[in-house]
Nucleic acid binder design. Structure first.
Lengths: 205, 205
DNA sequence: GCAATTTATGACACACACTGACAGATGACA
DNA sequence: TGTCATCTGTCAGTGTGTGTCATAAATTGC
């Protein structure tokens, strides 16, 4: 990796961290892009070259997580029931969060804290999730040998799996800024889901 | 209802219809508020007195639907299993859509068409749904005699119910602009959900 | 090392969404 | 009819986001 690329990555993380801190200090809405850019000595124009917009900063983790889940899902065998594959992929994602560097963990927790006390941002995060769901549904449909365009089941399976983690992240409230406890809550949610469905409900035919 | 109130309602619907048509003709992003306001002969400032923003026009139906579901849920007995109550409340909502006036139906279909071929708007719609979910979870928790802040189950039950209708609306694609077929798809989705869960999964304890 | 080429950045101008404040128009009601 | 509350347009201003161009820096080839 050349100097140029390393510099870019450093700038991206600097902007990300500065934005996160400012959002937590003085609120998301009241923080301007100019402030964020100013606090890391870049122009506002440059900010938009690293992030598509102010909210992209918040959704940055979502984009990363989607990649992780997609890769983890690819490691599950096609023969496994799809809902099981999804839950296991999500468990892998949570483990990767747990095993991250201290800096990554800090960012992750700040992110969660931000989403927790800002319903609008939480909404935007979920909105991004819709596109993720569609992509995952296509993959699940492929595994089941059916068509994602016409068959509802893959979409339903994915939507339920995503809803399960989301509830784990959101509830119970108020949440502690503790990674371990958060992982436990999500695991509790996943376990709850696992014993709620009829055997074979997620298989076509 | 006085003249003033009638005039306001007329203006609100005029703006709504004009915006919907413009969005469908030339796209959501490329349509400006000034255009919308201009096409119904009001100032842009007045537009913002009727709708909180450009996207509020799109979410107008969501706000209405939430009211319908909340009312329909209130009519279900507390003793009924919560997931059943929710699905039935959602069925009632769908029936109200079916029994609407031609104008209401037309708006509804335009709305759906707009959400169908614009993922960003679909996302915003789902984002609004998160707040709805929270409110419904509180009601479900009350019925089950548990605490929505600490117990995950009410949130899970609501999230699954909402995900079910959402999948019904979104899938299969491409969708016909036919109300009856849309109702059928949602009903198929609800029916699929009904036979996917273990008996009693949605009851606490 | 040194040019040639790509790429990141800043500076500027601009479109659009949205808000606050004020003045004038219009329904409500005695 | 006159007073009052409310609706509306105009105007000025803030903030987000984009296109464009010149400059500075890194990369590549010699």
């Amino acid at each position: 990796m050349g100097l140029r690329e390393r510099k870019k990555e450093k700038t991206r993380l600097a902007i990300l961290d500065a934005a996160l801190d400012l959002f937590l200090e003085q609120g998301y809405e009241t923080t301007t892009v100019e402030q964020i850019a100013g606090s890391v000595d870049v122009s506002a124009r440059t900010f938009f070259r690293y992030f598509t917009g102010k909210e992209h900063v918040v959704l940055w983790f979502h984009d990363n997580s989607e990649e992780l889940v997609t890769e983890a899902l690819a490691d599950r065998p096609d023969s496994e029931p799809p809902f099981t594959s999804l839950l296991e992929a999500l468990r892998t994602m949570m483990r990767l969060f747990r095993d991250g560097t201290p800096e990554e963990t800090e960012r992750f927790l700040k992110m969660q804290q931000l989403l927790e006390n800002n319903p609008v941002l939480a909404g935007k995060s979920v909105a991004r999730g819709v596109e993720t769901e569609r992509r995952l549904a296509v993959e699940i449909a492929r595994r089941q040998g059916c068509d994602a365009e016409t068959d509802q089941l893959p979409h339903l399976v994915v939507a339920y799996a995503m809803a399960t983690v989301r509830v784990g992240f959101e509830c119970p409230r108020p949440r502690e800024t503790d990674l371990a406890q958060m992982l436990e809550r999500v695991e509790a949610s996943l376990a709850l889901a696992e014993r709620s469905f009829q055997p074979g409900w997620d298989l076509v035919g």
